[in-house]
Write a protein that binds this DNA or RNA. Structure first.
Lengths: 276, 276
DNA sequence: CGGATGCATTGATGGCTATCAACTGCCGCA
DNA sequence: TGCGGCAGTTGATAGCCATCAATGCATCCG
């Protein structure tokens, strides 16, 4: 069995959870929130652990509180194909189906606010306004998925890479202190390895590497370490992406009613806030 | 303005509409159905006509009764990229957003059961069970879109072509009489031109043509005319697709709670049934 | 009838990128 | 300290496929 670490903390304290204003929880009224609190728990998974297996009944659903989850599909030959990344505040798991078509796997160490699927479905039955919000969020996700299809379908590898860098900068804002001169902004971070990033973009680690090095040579980004880059020239990155900033935001799921995700922070930070 | 042909026929007579058991209408109880009937109308569009424009507020939503609709996105350079095809009984239009991110365009002559978006949203408010069904359908669509991403991302062109042929055979069942020896089954029909099919698969008309000719030379299909083929060897087509039949059905949106679409028939046939 | 137009096919060519291979740097570990 | 493993990078090569071009084949229309 999976090693699920149960936490005594409830997720949806409304005042304390860092994603409560972004996740589906934002639609919970007082009664629904109390009920959600009663059934939900914080779970943590180590990077690489499977959260929900492909083909299984999704016993557990919920929100990502911190860290990232990758959505993969396994082909018959055993190859793993990534079809999406889930960010903090995103909903995970498959409701209203006894068959999850994808595998939800921890891409980093993650903290999840999880709830038994059946309980959540029953809750939705009683609170149509929550189900309504879930529908709206799902429609946005569907748009984003179709936008991603358009990106993959007729864009060069460089355009895809540049687009992903832009998305990651927006969805995983991060600031790091430098040695002496203060704070560096515009940090892009790969939350997952090269193989997974390449997979997500429909290319190979080698080609991905070449494109990143090319962006670095052009002075558009600076490579801090293999997983972190500093964006030096946003305008030229957008040129490489060949897309309008607005279109990229829509692919990234950063538009519409839903506010942007909060900064991605590790479980340890979350615990700090919880106990603060 | 668009040339909308209003029909005195209501769509959702429950007994007469050919897609009522497959479309969102199947969730309508007597009261909701009566209300839907009051606001909905049959519209027809000629092939190539735009139904809902990209970026517009979707004034009208509803179901496809017959024909096919293509979902496209226009890039800044004016290129059109197809991100999906909508079949009879599929829902079209964008609810709960004042911005449609895609363009809904008639790929063939289509008949739509359309309803004013605001009215439909109000109806959903009053009938949570309908909104629930819409959520379930949307979740299935999201899964299918992600399955399509996996297909496009790491499959060869031949695999994509074979997969699409398989999907079209399932979603657009058709029988044609031959000259003398009765009925030919296993007919695959392209409802749209080569350019659009190629676009959907992320390739070019030339490469698509070469792959189709190759399948023909291998004796897997027989080319009846440029838009119709007879499937001669289903097993080998599946080999070319490199996917399990089950996986293809899921990409095609042919699984789960929702029954398969009815045979695609033209508006003229629909009218026959209406007047019968 | 003949030219124009649009669509599909076929051919020739170049380029992008997957593949294979080798190398580097890093980390854990004995 | 040295070794092995892993991830990322770099290089060389082959192959698939996009591109350009030309041909067939229908339809439409003057």
């Amino acid at each position: 069995m999976k090693e699920i670490v149960l936490s005594p903390n409830r997720c949806c304290k409304r005042k304390r959870c860092v994603v409560v204003d972004h996740a589906i929880c934002r639609a919970l009224g007082p009664d629904a929130a109390a009920e959600f609190d009663r059934y939900s728990h914080l779970h943590t998974f180590k990077s690489g652990q499977m959260i929900v297996g492909q083909g299984e009944d999704s016993v557990m659903v919920g929100n990502i509180v911190s860290g990232m989850v990758k959505l993969t599909i396994c082909t018959e030959e055993g190859n793993q194909q990534i079809v999406g990344l889930l960010y903090p505040s995103d909903f995970f798991g498959r409701i209203f189906s006894d068959r999850t078509r994808f595998c939800y796997e921890a891409a980093t160490d993650v903290t999840l606010c999880a709830i038994d699927r059946r309980n959540f479905e029953k809750l939705l039955e009683r609170y149509p306004e929550v189900e309504h919000q879930l529908l709206v969020d799902t429609l946005d996700e569907l748009d984003a998925a179709r936008g991603w299809i358009a990106l993959i379908n007729n864009r060069t590898t460089m355009q895809r890479v540049a687009t992903l860098l832009f998305i990651l900068m927006r969805r995983l804002p991060e600031e790091i202190p430098t040695d002496r001169q203060g704070i560096v902004h515009n940090i892009i971070r790969f939350p997952i390895g090269r193989r997974d990033v390449a997979d997500l973009l429909g290319t190979t680690p080698e080609t991905l590497s070449r494109n990143i090095q090319s962006l670095s040579r052009q002075g558009i980004i600076r490579i801090i370490d293999p997983n972190r880059f500093e964006l030096l020239d946003e305008t030229r990155l957008l040129d490489c992406a060949g897309e309008l900033e607005e279109d990229i935001e829509f692919i990234a799921g950063l538009t519409d009613q839903r506010p942007a995700s909060p900064p991605s922070i590790g479980p340890e930070h979350f615990d700090e806030r919880e106990s603060a």
